[in-house]
Amino acid sequence: ARLPRSAVLKKILDSVKDLVKETNWDCNEEGMSMQALDTGRIVLVEVMLREAAFESYACEVPMTLGIDMEPFGKVLRCAGGDEKVTIKASRNDQDHIELVFENEEKERMSAFELKLMDIDGEHMAVPDAEWGAEISMPSSEFKKIVMDLAEIGSDLTIAVSKLGVTFTAQGNNCKGSMVLQPSTAVDKKSEQVAISFTEPLEMTFAAPYMKMITKAAALSSTVTLSLDEACPICVRYEMEDNAGHIKYYLAPKED
């Protein structure tokens, strides 16, 4: 599997490493994917890197690669963001993978080996949901709202109604809310706020977890929040050019 830029892998690692320390990557002809629960079992994260994300991709037999994020991060830090990355896994020797970084400008090549782990992965079945509300907005805006409100209080409430979408946080000494309305005057789709819902709803989530989820803003200019009463929220970042996505399911807080 050969990626044109290592930056994609670096950003994926940054987006999951606070939640997941080790995880199985499932490789098949469609691409590489992973699903993992954080240790607290509050967030489920799913990553899909489709074949389209790669400059070249070949997977003759489906394989599972058990990856420890810490050494993987150390290896990835050795790659420049613009360098190509080739990941090689041998079906005859499933003890490790090889990573090769190529810097075409400097004619430099570096090679690393990463030992694989035997991880008892837990796969969760995510039912197809009919969402009660969907909001899409610039991922940078969502990140700023969450980062700011997480300073105010540890509970983040998201309410969707005719007024728009309201994000509220309440702390011991202060309370704050921000309201977004669907944008009408913005031309660029990536800068638009779109809101759809069937019934008004209001749900509360842990702000520190939501903060971790906004790290994936580096992977996509837009984010989609899907909500339904008494269900985990789905926060989805679609990568450009059908390259794949990262999805987080965060369980709500309830009285």
Partner: peptide, 14 residues
């Protein structure tokens, strides 16, 4: 204070 639910209360193991 609201109590934190777990993902496993909503999704089942495959």
């Amino acid at each position: 204070m609201a109590s934190q639910k777990r993902i496993t209360a909503f999704f089942k193991r495959k």
